[in-house]
Amino acid sequence: MLDKAKALHDELIRLRRDIHAHPELGFQEFRTAALVADTLTELGIDVKTSVGRTGVVGQLGNGDGPTIAIRADMDALPILQKSDAPYKSQNKGVMHACGHDAHTAMLLGAAHLLKQSLADGNWQGNVRLLFQPSEEAFDENGISGATAMISDGALEDVDAVIALHVASDKPAGQIRFQDGYALANVDSFKAWVRGDGGHGAYPHTGSDPLHMLSVILPAIYAIPSRQINPLRGCVVSLGEISGGAAPNVIPNEVYLQGTIRSYHDDVREQLHIEVERTLKLAEQMGGSYKLQLTKGYPAMFNNAEVNGWMRDVAQEMVAETAVIDTEFGMGAEDFAYMTRQAKGAMFMLGAAIDDGIERHHHTDIFDIDESVLPLGVAILAETAHRFVTGKIR
C-alpha cells in the first residue's frame, strides 16, 4: 500500500496545494467540498454532499458487514498568511494554518487506493470517507463540523473511526500514538469583577476591583495544584486582563478571560466550580462578579484497540524508531465527538520542514513537508483495508 501511495505523490501535492491556495473558513468550504465530491465521483465512489452543511461523505463497499470511517477536516483559519510559496493563500486573511489541506488530500489519496483494492473481491465490509467542515470553531449555536455531521447521520452504523493529524513541529515521517485520553476538554470563561471605583487619592471611600483581582488571581492559578488531584491533569490559564484607563482613577470593573483544560469529565465540572469559587472572593471584599462559562470540545479518547491497528500498520511501513508512543498534550480536537459515537483513534504524523525554522500550528508561516503525504495515505488506507478484509476487527 505504501508503494501505491508513493505513486500518487505528485497528485497528492497537487491536491494539497490547490486546497491550500483556496482556503475557506468553517461551514464555508464550498469550493473545497466541490473539489472533494468531484474527485470522489471521478473515482466511481458514491457521494453525498451537504452532510453537516458543507461536509462530504463517500461510501465504498456493498453495504454488508461492518463499517470503518476515515475522517479528514477541510476548514482553514482567519489568519493572514506570510509566504512566498507559489501555492500561498489567494483568499486574503484566510489560510490553512493547521494542515487540514493535507488531511483532505491524504483522505482523497486513501479513497483512490481503497477503490483500487475493492476490485479484489475480498471485502467483507464498508469504508466511509468523512470530509468534515468546521473543525476549528463552533457556529453561533455551538455547533461544530463533527457534531453537524453526526446529526446528519454520518456515523450511523459505523463500527470504528480513524483519523490523522499532521504535526509541523515533529520530524517528518515520525508517527506518534497515545492510548486513552490524548487531547483535552477545552472550555473558556469570561469574568467581570466589579467594585465602586473612585478617585485614586481616596481608595478607602469605595471598593477597588483591581485590589480584589490581586487576591483572585493567585487563587485561580492555585486551582490545578491545590484543588484538583495531581494525578488528573488540568490547566487554567488567563489570556486577557483589562481594566482602568487613567493612573488616578480606580475603575469600577475589571475584565478577564481564560481557558480551562482537562481530560476527565468530573475534573471538568470541578474546574468550573472552582473558578467561580475564586471569583466569589470579590464579594468578601465588598464587590461583585459576573461569570460566563462556555463549554468547548470534549476530551479526545483514543481507543487502544483501534490505535493498535494503526500502530501495527505503521510499524510495518517505517523504521521502528519512527513510531513513538507519547503524550499529545492539552490541545483540542472536535474529532473527540466522533470517538464518543464509535470506537476510534487519531495518530499524529510528523511533518516538519527540516530547515531550522519553526512553523507552528495556527501561525502565519505554517507549512509542512509534503513528502509525508504518501505515508499518511498508506496508513489510513491499509488500516481500513485490513478491517474490511477481516484481518482486523
Score class of each variant (00 low, 15 high):
D10V: 12
E11W: 14
R16I: 09
F30T: 08
A33N: 05
D46Y: 11
V51D: 12
G52W: 02
R53S: 09
T54W: 13
T67N: 02
I68Y: 00
I68E: 00
A69Q: 00
A76P: 00
P78W: 06
S83I: 09
A85L: 14
P86E: 15
A102F: 06
A102T: 05
M106P: 00
A111D: 01
A111K: 05
L113W: 05
K115F: 00
I143R: 14
S144E: 01
A148W: 07
S151W: 13
E156M: 05
V158S: 00
V158W: 01
A160G: 02
V161Y: 06
A163G: 10
H165F: 10
D169I: 13
A172K: 07
Q174K: 15
R176Q: 15
G180E: 03
Y181D: 10
S188N: 14
K190R: 14
K190V: 12
A191N: 02
A191C: 02
G198Q: 01
H204Y: 14
G206L: 08
V236S: 04
G239S: 05
E240D: 13
S242W: 11
E253D: 08
L256V: 11
T259H: 03
S262Q: 04
Y263K: 02
H264L: 15
H264F: 15
D266V: 12
Q270I: 04
T278Y: 00
K280Y: 02
A282Q: 04
G287Y: 05
T294L: 14
G296S: 10
P298Q: 05
A304S: 15
A304G: 01
N307L: 08
V313M: 03
M317I: 01
A322R: 15
D325L: 11
A332K: 06
A336H: 05
R340N: 15
A342C: 15
K343P: 11
L349D: 10
D364A: 11
F366E: 12
I368Y: 08
L375N: 12
V377F: 10
L380W: 12
A381S: 06
